[in-house]
Amino acid sequence: MSLLRLENVTKQFGGLVAVNNVSFEIKEGEFLGIVGTNGSGKTTLFNVINGVFFPEQGRVFFNDMDITRTPSYKRAPLGIGRTFQIPRPFASATVRENIAVGAMFGTMGKQLNVDQSLEVADHVIERMGLGKHRLKSAGLLTPVEKKLMEIGRALAMRPRLLLMDEAMAGMHPNDIDDMVEMIISIGKEENIAIVAMVEHIMRAVVGMAEKLIVLDQGEKIVDAPTDEALADSRVVDAYLGKSGETKDA
């Protein structure tokens, strides 16, 4: 059964078509990579999935429920978590409080009180290796720590689906490997479907993804299991062939 399904989604801004007639689906626990250059409509697609924008056309289903026009704050409790391209911590709050917010208003939000949420946060902090920053203001973290914290905040929501927007940008390749490995193992343990969005074909992400979707100027040009997608001539042209070098790959 599909966890998330998009049917012919189109989103425009003024005359500009940011996402054009895109359909795809993700199964439970699946790891999906979305590749697309800057301006290919990736972030807009995320914003449609988690309800920041509503599409002009098409529908979005989550667990077979139509959520096309469900406001974003109602999607989080359904199990859609997200990280941002540029981390957006609640700067004045501590790391612990930031992550607790995830637990408090996520899928378990109704059951957890503040103290229990803080306990969840402590577990996540340990898991993410943020122990020594537990009581630091999130605004004082380094960019990489902010990213980790943001992923932790999303994981504390106990999501069914985790949307990661350029989660690895600006990180050291070794860190990327570790992080991707950790995220995937958490995803498998807790049966979280993960959509990782990247600008380039990164070995770490693409290598682990079960399925790859390639976006170009708002349109989906490839949607196939990873090995097939990588062999696709359009992908080769767009990412490997023309530039003459294999970025990060």
Binding site: Y73, R75, F105
Partner: peptide, 21 residues
């Protein structure tokens, strides 16, 4: 939870919404 929600929305309203607030 009210306090946590208010802190979140004070710092970043869009992120707060996405977190389910």
């Amino acid at each position: 939870k009210i306090g946590y929600a208010l802190t979140a929305l004070r710092e970043d309203e869009d992120a707060a919404k996405v977190m389910g607030i």
